[in-house]
């Protein structure tokens, strides 16, 4: 791996982070910092926005313009920031509860608009910060504090949701494979338009210990065992992909970007 000066990006006074031992979010954060470094973005030009939950704490640890908003609304706040200052590289860090339960409406509409922001959704399939309640991505049958007999709801395929809504770039990776994950984040950051990376991240504390994955290594092994690269998945039968994590670039297209359309409108009006 390429050497990165992490001290340049981390706020020394505000680390170590609060995430539990074995949590994958530290790897997700480190990978994100590496991807920003690869991009060569000036720190002053980066704005990192989050909502509420374990993922919500991420912006506080990194030395960018950082905003920790209300539950579910990070993308709406980020939309305001991007529209008021198009020069900022706006990155939203959200989770499965924050991003597709309480905040699902903002995710699909930002994707529909194809606004030039990147959303990193750190999916640990549980409400971790509040102690392990069932989330929209908790797999069917898995236990949670509000699903003591096993989850009786179907879970979201978030990537399909964002694709249907209109996102320009959609990828999925896991913290078990940070090398791939970094590449996916760099591709997302490089993409003009709405880009989305789902990051599968283990939560041994709130999810694993209720679901026969008590240790962090067991959860990492589980991520590895269930991961299927997209190229291989395309050759498989849909039934064989049940419970699997399909990784890689899932969608890459070039719809016209929102602020570009708007800027053209303004230029035409003002020129007229």
């Amino acid at each position: 791996m390429r050497a990165v000066d992490y001290d340049k990006y981390l706020r020394a006074a505000h680390v170590p982070h609060i995430w539990c031992p074995g949590c994958g979010h530290g790897i997700a954060l480190k990978t994100m910092v590496r991807a920003v470094d690869t991009m060569g973005w000036e720190k002053n030009d980066v704005c990192m926005v989050s909502g509420i939950g374990c993922s919500g704490r991420a912006p506080g640890y990194v030395d960018f313009n950082s905003l920790h908003t209300t539950h579910g609304r990070a993308i709406a706040f980020a939309s305001g920031i991007k529209l008021a200052n198009n020069n900022l590289n706006v990155v939203v860090v959200t989770g499965d509860g924050d991003g597709v339960a309480i905040g699902g409406n903002h995710l699909i509409h930002a994707a529909r608009r194809n606004l030039d922001i990147t959303v990193l959704l750190w999916n640990n399939t549980i409400y971790g910060m509040t102690g392990g309640q069932v989330s929209p991505t908790t797999p069917l049958g898995c236990k949670a504090t509000t699903a003591p007999f096993g989850n009786y709801e179907h879970s979201f395929n978030i990537a399909e949701l964002v694709a249907a809504a209109g996102g320009n770039f959609i990828a999925r990776g896991t913290v078990h494979n940070p090398i791939q994950l970094e590449k996916l984040m760099v591709q997302a950051f490089s993409k003009r338009g709405f880009s989305f990376v789902e990051v599968m991240s283990p939560c041994p504390t709130a999810f694993g210990r209720r679901n026969k994955l008590k240790s962090a290594p067991a959860m990492m092994q589980d991520l590895k065992d269930r991961s299927i690269p997209i190229a291989k998945a395309l050759k498989m039968e849909p039934d064989d992909l049940d419970g699997k994590i399909v990784t890689g670039v899932l969608l890459d297209r070039d719809k016209q970007e929102y602020t570009d359309i708007y800027r053209n409108l303004v230029a035409n009006l003002r020129g007229a």
Binding site: A76, N85, L265
Partner: peptide, 28 residues
């Protein structure tokens, strides 16, 4: 738009309120 500012109709009331806070933090 004629004045070079930004108008957006958001997806809901909460998003509209959130967006104007974000816009203000970015200087508008």
């Amino acid at each position: 738009p004629r004045a070079g500012g930004v108008f957006i109709q958001m997806e809901d009331e909460i998003a509209a309120m959130s967006a104007i806070i974000g816009g203000s933090l970015a200087g508008a």
